[in-house]
Amino acid sequence: MRSLILLTTLSAALACGPADGGTASGSETSTAATGDPQTASTQPTSTGDSTGGVPTAPECQEDADCALFNDCCRCTAAPKSAQFPECDATCLQSTCDALGLRDVQVACLSGRCEFARVTCSDGPVACDEAKPQCAEGTVNSVKDSCWGPCMDPRYCEGGPCTADSCGDGWTCVDSQSGASTCAPVPFECSGGTPTCACLQPYLDEFCGGACSDAAGGVLCEDGG
């Protein structure tokens, strides 16, 4: 199960009608799949399987297989075919918007539907928008010369990361050059343990060279 990054408490607001399960425009309080109205998360409580089970085969082959599920109850990337429980909450803004995830994109990473990688930066930017104040545990990103969504650092292009910084279901991939980046552990990896064998179909996404197994993860042999 992907780890949950708990963000700041969201302000309660007046109810203004039932959500329709899609992008909501209205709520008492925006929550993610945690079901706790005092917390919200940029991660779902399941790995693409709406029943809470963990798949053992890839859930996507390309970005187009994934969709953003954004309503009063959740803000998550999942296969387009995923079925989530009906969201009975009402909200003034959708969960993604409440979390500062405006214009967040989804992608197929390591055979999993995830938020797309972003360029993490504190600027400067070319637009006149004020710099977003990101919640604890998230960082600023830049998109099209302006500010992008506040994201969990695991989604930053090019890292860096440490063995413990990527969270459950992810691994920090080190390179001989000294670079590092977080990568989702494919569902095919038994017990969630990353190895070069189970990562092989996805190495091009985060490893430019050969791969060797290392303690607690893998190493990209890029000749550095």
Rank of each mutant, 00 (worst) to 15 (best):
S141L: 00
F69T: 04
C91S: 15
C66G: 08
P58K: 05
D122Y: 00
R74V: 05
L99I: 04
G100R: 07
P79T: 04
G53M: 10
P149W: 07
Q83H: 14
C172K: 03
Q83L: 15
R154M: 01
V54T: 09
K131D: 09
M151A: 09
K80L: 13
A67C: 08
S145V: 05
T119N: 09
E129Q: 13
A78V: 10
A135K: 07
A57C: 01
T138N: 11
K80H: 14
C127N: 14
L109R: 08
R154Q: 08
C166F: 03
E157R: 04
F84G: 06
S81Y: 13
E59L: 06
F115H: 15
S165W: 07
G137M: 06
V142H: 04
D168H: 05
P58L: 04
E114Q: 13
C87I: 06
A130R: 14
G111K: 15
C172Y: 01
K80Q: 15
V54P: 02
A57D: 14
V54Y: 02
C72W: 07
C60V: 07
L109Y: 02
D144Q: 12
V106E: 08
Q105C: 01
A82T: 15
S94V: 03
C113H: 07
C87P: 05
C60G: 06
T90P: 05
A116W: 01
F84A: 08
S81Q: 13
D128C: 07
C73K: 14
W147D: 01
N70A: 08
C161H: 06
V104L: 04
P79V: 04
V142P: 04
A57I: 06
S165V: 02
D103A: 09
Q93D: 15
C156D: 02
C146N: 01
C172P: 03
L101C: 05
S165R: 12
P149E: 09
D63G: 10
C127V: 09
Q105R: 15
C72R: 12
V142I: 09
S145N: 13
A64M: 07
D152K: 04
F84N: 10
C146T: 06
T119Y: 02
A130Y: 10
